[in-house]
């Protein structure tokens, strides 16, 4: 029992450290990739190729003054960024990152808690992440923050419906909510990947995922031109940094989820061992995030709602219906 507890604590610490560091590193990648696509140089001055820019940004965030506005609701204002970052990391508890491996004669399963309904857990904890922007906006005592919070609620609630319905179709094919079962279902090589049988579900899931992460085509929560910085207007220093880390951790979660559900997960791919295969897939999805950010403009809030309720949701329902008929036959 105590060995189990110690092992779990070690896993938790490793996941926390690795993904917070990765979140910082992805910001560097994001700036470099965006700069490349827009024919700029990006960060160049701090360290070789601007590699130490991440460190400089970190020092800046940690040493900045932590300001709480006088009209803000102090405890809620202070707790909101913690919710945002914490839910992003809690969601990772049910994700199997790699295949099992042996370390000093001890089999390590790289999943913190193997619950039976892993996928639902990840999605629902991700949905709770909405309380970060929501409480931040409502406690700031600032109208831009409140507008950002209203947009956050509308956008995340609406797209949760789409992502839930989209994921239902592949789940009907597999018949299990466990991410490990979903991964094992696709063990027979590249043609077993669910993306070939459920391409519509994959597209819907990734679009809804972008909206839930408020990545660029849908980043209405903190649209600079309309609502200053949305829910994060009044935040500074590390409290703002926690929102930031939460967003990037959620990006990694979505990349792992897409790779696990639709792209074969951590099964061996030709000669590539499973652990490296899933890393390559996750890197591709992260790159896709940056690529989309460079390629697409923002959309308006009414266009977003139109897209969600009049386009994506009917397609998701039809997809479920067709999948149901095919599964029944």
């Amino acid at each position: 029992m105590s060995a189990y507890i110690i092992e779990t604590i070690i896993k938790v610490v490793v996941v926390m450290l690795v993904f917070s560091a990765l979140a910082g590193f992805i910001t560097y990648l994001e700036r470099k990739v965006l700069a490349f696509m827009q024919r700029r140089l990006g960060p160049m001055y701090v360290g070789p190729y601007g590699l130490l820019q991440v460190l400089a940004d970190g020092i800046k965030l940690f040493t900045k003054e932590d300001i709480v506005p006088s009209n803000a609701n102090r405890p809620i204002f202070m707790i909101a960024p913690v919710i945002s970052a914490a839910t992003a990391f809690i969601a990772m508890a049910a994700i199997p990152f790699f295949p099992e491996f042996d370390l000093f004669g001890h089999t390590v399963r790289p999943i913190i808690s193997d619950i039976n309904v892993g996928l639902l857990f990840v999605l629902s904890v991700g949905a709770i992440g909405m309380y970060g922007p929501l409480l931040a906006g409502m406690s700031s005592g600032n109208k831009w923050s409140l507008l950002g919070a209203a947009r956050a609620t509308v956008q995340l609630l609406s797209f949760e419906v789409v992502s839930g319905l989209a994921i239902l179709a592949p789940l009907m094919v597999i018949g299990s909510l466990s991410l490990i079962d979903i991964n094992n279902y696709q063990h027979g090589g590249i043609f077993d990947w669910l993306v070939w049988t459920q391409p519509v579900a994959f597209l819907l899931f990734i679009i809804a995922g972008y909206a839930e992460l408020n990545r660029t085509p849908f980043d209405l929560l903190e649209h600079e031109a309309e609502v200053v910085a949305g829910f994060a207007t009044e935040y500074s220093g590390m409290r703002w940094g926690m929102f930031f880390i939460g967003e990037y951790a959620n990006m990694i979660t979505l990349a792992f989820l897409s790779a696990l559900i639709f792209f074969g997960g951590f099964n061996d791919l030709w000669f590539i061992p499973g652990g490296i295969a899933i890393l390559l897939k996750v890197m591709f999805f992260i790159f896709l995030f940056l690529w989309v950010r460079a390629a697409w403009p923002h959309i308006r809030p009414d266009q977003l709602m139109w897209l969600c309720w009049k386009v994506l949701m009917p397609i998701a329902l039809v997809n479920i219906l067709i999948t149901g008929i095919v599964v029944m036959i």
Binding site: I128, M130, Y131, A149, A150, L157
Partner: peptide, 19 residues
């Protein structure tokens, strides 16, 4: 289901009304 229905949906609607 408790998390996603009560906290994720019902409470979020309350919050939206409270705005």
């Amino acid at each position: 289901v408790q998390i996603v229905v009560y906290t994720g949906a019902v409470m979020a609607l309350y919050a939206f009304g409270m705005m």
